[in-house]
């Protein structure tokens, strides 16, 4: 790895601009996720949070600006390149495979695992079989870590919503990513589940040196978990810093609560 690779932030966006027709979704956003940090992106609906994620994932191509991973600019990257870069993303809509079991869902996330060749697989040779068992063991270990070992052979649709969100997390974690992108991880969770999730992410981060970038509406969750918070409003980054500073920023207050009435 180059010298730049070790000191550069894991993920960096430089002056990213995206417009859909006349609508500017991202207007010159620069943002970095340093190693081992948890960065939260917040903002009102339509502020450009999901577009930001889609740019990082390669679903949306920026009109200008660049995305760098470990200091290396990504050129023409596509969604399937992310896993190889050590980036895993969860989706707002879960995106679980309803027709596969929970364990199979998690196994499908492990593309970086050594894979058997096509012919051994097709002929069901012992080597392919052994790798399949290794992969399953790995999936079960991740599920166990997230407290889902009992659900391994159920279809995900049979689990409560909170558990399904943990399956999504397990599927992202089995790829052993360096950076985890979480799209509204707390959405639809109860207060108890949210504090459970906060604890879980804090543990994972400490144990795996995981960097996280998350988009979220739930303020307490973001303020409790993140090292840095970035606030988007109409595609512009209006504040960026530690949670406490961002919370009191007059621009952020205005974006969330509306402009203060002029003193009369």
């Amino acid at each position: 790895m180059s010298a730049a690779g070790t000191s550069a932030p894991l993920l960096e966006l430089r002056d990213v601009r995206v417009a859909f027709g006349g609508l500017t979704a991202l207007d010159g956003v620069s943002l970095a996720v340093p190693r081992g940090r948890v960065v939260g992106v917040i903002g009102p609906n339509g502020a450009g949070k999901t577009t930001l994620f889609n740019v990082v994932c390669g679903f949306v191509r920026p009109d200008s600006g660049e995305v760098l991973v470990r200091g290396e600019p990504l050129r023409g990257h596509r969604p399937h390149h992310l896993a190889a870069l050590g980036v895993a993303r969860t989706l707002q809509g879960l995106g679980l495979f309803g027709q596969l079991t929970v364990a199979e869902n998690v196994m499908a996330g492990a593309v970086r695992a050594p894979r058997a060749g096509f012919l051994p697989t097709l002929l069901a040779l012992p080597r392919a079989d052994r790798r399949e068992r290794d992969l399953r063991a790995k999936a079960l270990a991740v599920l166990d870590r997230l407290g889902l070992a009992d659900a391994a052979d159920l279809p995900p649709g049979r689990l409560p919503h909170g558990d399904q969100k943990r399956v999504v997390l397990a599927r992202a974690l089995i790829a052993e990513p360096a950076l985890l992108l979480l799209d509204e991880p707390a959405a639809g969770l109860s207060t108890a589940e949210i504090s459970e999730l906060t604890g879980l992410l804090a543990t994972l981060r400490a144990a795996d040196q995981l960097s996280v970038m998350l988009v979220e509406h739930h303020m307490d969750f973001v303020m409790g978990l993140c090292d840095d918070v970035a606030v988007l409003d109409f595609g512009r980054l209006i504040a960026h810093g530690p949670p406490a500073a961002v919370r009191d920023d007059p621009q952020v207050v205005a974006a969330y609560l509306g402009e203060a009435a002029a003193d009369g």
């Binding site: 994932c57 596509r78 969604p79 399937h80 992310l82 896993a83 895993a88 993303r89 989706l91 995106g95 495979f97 309803g98 027709q99 596969l100 199979e104 196994m107 499908a108 996330g109 492990a110 593309v111 695992a113 894979r115 058997a116 096509f118 697989t121 097709l122 069901a124 392919a128 079989d129 790798r131 399949e132 992969l135 599927r171 790829a175």
Partner: peptide, 20 residues
């Protein structure tokens, strides 16, 4: 097999599979 698992995943939800 992992290959078959990927084939099924790709068939059921191509966009999610690409992300993985």
């Amino acid at each position: 097999t992992p290959l078959g698992l990927r084939m099924r995943a790709a068939a059921f939800a191509p966009e999610v599979s690409r992300l993985l």
